[in-house]
Design a protein around this nucleic acid. Structure first.
Length: 285
DNA sequence: CGTATTTGACCCGCGC
DNA sequence: GCGCGGGTCAAATACG
């Protein structure tokens, strides 16, 4: 039996999962990266007035990234129906985020189970993903697709496969983060004095240099490749979730005020198109 | 023609 | 050592 007879498999996967991926990739540690044991984000309240604290400190006391509970809390701000549906229905985008238990973290990888509610998933995060592989999985009729951030300086990856139990449920596994997303959080050009003592990445990636910069900027417009391109507040979910997780009490307002197409930032490799408006972000949170 | 996708080959880790 | 399976590579192909 061929999955998704009416819609090309890869197309469905990609358009469906992109927006969700952005939701989480900004939170994720790269499994093999030197940042794996370092906090991804520090916020103004975290930094305070101590210059020495303006860079993520890879110590045991540092913020080690979101837990499943953090992410679930962030997700919980999505409007939930009053009834006893087992998942949060996102009517605008035609899919549902399965309720508690659908999100798992395993060895710095997050897996998310998302229920498709029919229709084509047309939502994009502005980032581009390049499919680099597809494999048939043993004992599963559904292949697994492998995607990598099209930004060559970014190591973010995702895997998407259809659930065996429920053909309408997608299992998306996120690994790594959009490193170019972290650019605006640091001032470049200063000699690194604080850097992670952890192991080097398996592959040479110039991106981690950003983390070596001692000065940390508060969350602002993600700046994929060139800090000089930074403009005003943006508002992708990816921008907001790290902040949300740290500020659960103000999550809802922050997102409702920040989600709009007009404030969509320029994606790393291509300008946003009308179809790339983060509708998922606006409707989900 | 440049870019993205497809897909078989290849690599590597793991269990037997 | 060998086979298996997951992950990645890269040439061929499709597409805009």
């Amino acid at each position: 039996m061929e999955p998704l007879a009416a819609v090309p498999w890869s197309d469905t996967y990609n358009t469906f999962s992109d927006d969700h991926l952005l939701t989480l990739t900004g939170l994720l540690h790269d499994d093999d990266d030197a940042t794996a044991s370092s906090p991804l984000f520090l916020l103004p309240q975290d930094i305070g007035d101590n210059p020495a604290a303006k860079f993520p400190v890879p110590s045991g006391a540092a913020y080690l990234g979101p837990t499943i509970e953090d992410i679930e809390n962030a997700l919980s701000i999505a409007p939930r129906p009053k009834d006893l549906q087992s998942h949060t229905h996102i009517s605008h985008t035609g899919f549902s985020i399965l309720d508690r238990g659908s999100l798992n973290k395993v060895e710095h990888k997050y897996s998310l189970r998302i229920k498709s509610c029919g229709g084509n998933m047309v939502a994009d995060d502005g980032y581009k993903w390049r499919k680099y592989g597809q494999k048939s999985i043993k004992n599963s009729p559904n292949p697994r697709s492998y995607y990598r951030c099209s930004n060559p300086r970014c190591s973010a990856k995702k895997q998407v496969e259809r659930s065996i139990e429920d053909p309408d449920t997608f299992v998306i596994t996120y690994e790594g983060l959009h490193l170019h997303f972290a650019y605006p959080f640091f001032l470049m050009g200063q000699s690194p004095q604080v850097q992670s003592p952890t192991k080097k990445p398996k592959t040479i990636d110039p991106e981690p240099e950003a983390y070596k910069s001692p000065t940390f900027l508060p969350p602002g417009p993600p700046l994929p490749d060139d800090p000089k391109e930074a403009t005003g507040p943006q508002g992708l979910l990816e921008d907001m979730v790290p902040w949300m997780i740290r500020n659960p009490s103000t999550n809802h307002n922050a997102l409702s005020n920040s989600s709009s197409c007009s404030s969509h930032r320029s994606p790393p490799l291509s300008p946003p198109s009308p179809s790339t408006c983060p509708t998922f972000i606006a409707s989900c949170f």
